[in-house]
């Protein structure tokens, strides 16, 4: 990777992405070869927002590389509660660790934190901004199931606040991918992401109905529409209901359609899809381990 940190998918080149995915494939093939790779190294986990799977998968990935982790713990029991700035927190914690993973509720938090530390820093989600390590595992899953070039992908749900969507859309501009964005009008992609997609010359179309595009898709990436994005319960139910899929919805889809979701899901993918060949979201979640191992391996191996 050209940079020491992983802050935004917009900073990733095709070569950066392929280096991580290739390394992840090596790890998948022979995990034992990486078991002691980073023995003696410590990864600092700084989660200012609740997280189960991202935190656990980074924890597991570091331990499978032979390293250890130190966890800041919940915000309620840390110095943050006493009013410490994020800039101070990361400067202190970098002394305890060889790399940091940061999740924070404010957009731009990881960019700012990276200006204050010398160890590699991974953005594990900054508000409604970016979530690039999720994107790497999404890309790995897409590559394994549908291929990253000559790809037609539909990305559906909360495109405005969905950080996994922003990162994925920007990363896909490195590949020959045609991107279809399906959402209610009020949850369209934010201006800055549309600006980047336009500037990169990506093939992009926006829709309000999945039917318009479903038959052409190789991959359907579904995200959750959150209750708190709507002024009242009724409007939320009305809108969210239009972006849920079940096996009946998928009747017009290609037989080899890959359905993905960053999880957790609530009711946007009906459980009756789980047993079909379309369902790829659990495999996607499991890919978090080899991909995060690969990412940490690359970041921790760089000459500093």
């Amino acid at each position: 990777m050209r940079q020491d940190h992983l802050i935004s998918a917009s900073h990733l080149s095709r070569e950066d992405i392929e280096a991580v995915l290739d390394r992840a494939a090596d790890i998948d093939d022979d995990p034992a070869a990486f078991r002691q790779r980073h023995a003696g190294k410590v990864l600092g986990l700084c989660f200012f927002e609740p997280s189960t799977r991202t935190r656990m998968s980074f924890d597991s990935a570091m331990k499978r590389l032979g390293g250890q982790t130190v966890d800041m713990g919940p915000v309620e029991s840390s110095s943050v509660k006493k009013g410490e700035t994020l800039a101070d927190t990361v400067r202190v914690v970098e002394g305890y660790a060889d790399a940091l993973v940061l999740r924070h509720p404010s957009e731009g938090a990881a960019t700012m934190a990276s200006e204050f530390v010398d160890v590699p820093l991974v953005n594990a989600g900054d508000g409604a901004g970016q979530h690039p390590s999720q994107t790497l595992l999404d890309l790995y899953t897409i590559r394994e199931n549908a291929g990253l070039d000559d790809l037609t992908i539909g990305i559906m749900g909360d495109l405005k606040y969905g950080r996994t969507v922003h990162s994925l859309a920007e990363a896909l501009t490195n590949f020959d991918a045609s991107q279809h964005f399906v959402s209610p009008e009020s949850l369209r992609l934010p201006r800055n992401v549309r600006y980047d997609l336009h500037a990169s010359g990506a093939q992009v179309r926006e829709h309000t109905e999945l039917d318009e595009v479903l038959p052409e898709l190789d991959v359907l990436y579904v995200t959750r529409i959150q209750r708190e994005r709507f002024p009242d319960e009724n409007e939320y139910r009305k809108v969210a209901g239009q972006y849920q899929i079940d096996s009946e919805t998928l009747e017009s889809a290609a037989d080899d359609l890959t359905v993905m979701h960053p999880l957790p899901r609530v009711d946007e993918i009906s459980p009756d899809i789980d047993d079909t060949d379309h369902a790829t979201y659990f495999e996607q979640a499991h890919n978090g381990i080899p991909v995060r191992m690969a990412l940490l391996d690359i970041l921790l191996s760089q000459d500093r």
Partner: peptide, 29 residues
């Protein structure tokens, strides 16, 4: 919700585009 509006020791910083500016932290245009 941008970190540049929180109580952190940084200054707001924007990159100038042809038809506006973009926040260096949260990328808002």
């Amino acid at each position: 919700n941008c970190i540049s509006n929180a109580d952190e020791p940084i200054r707001s910083r924007f990159t100038v585009l042809s038809d506006g500016v973009r926040c260096d932290y949260c990328e808002t245009i």
